[in-house]
Amino acid sequence: MARVLVVEDDANQRKLYEMELRRDGYEVDTAKNGREAIEKVKAGGYDVVVMDLKMPEMTGLDAITEIASIDKDLPIIINTAYGGWQDDFKSWAACAYVLKSSDLTELRRRIREAVTSRSEGSEG
């Protein structure tokens, strides 16, 4: 079972992603901010990270850079309500950039792709 880490400062949204992704059959873990996310990634075992960008304490972009340095192969999907950072080179360490929507179809597709490519990569 693939493990997903959702990094999101909004409690209600964390609940939403947790509920929906579990329903999809993922093992879902959450973090409230970048720092917490890094701690969890260090502990290891995730197949994909879903990362909000605008968070207190440590922004998503900084967290992405940090995570990439810990596990460069761990796919990170940026999931944000804010389109402004798409061109920030730090965001290029992520494998996808999803604009937050109440329709989670796009997010789901990206997670599926990431998980698939990761499992293929580890097999190959």
């Binding site: 605008k54 309500a81 989670l104």
Partner: peptide, 20 residues
Amino acid sequence: AQVAHEIRNPLVTIGGFARS
């Protein structure tokens, strides 16, 4: 942009749960 961001977050939550 700021307005969009501020509004989008609650909309995501509301819409997401409603769809679910």
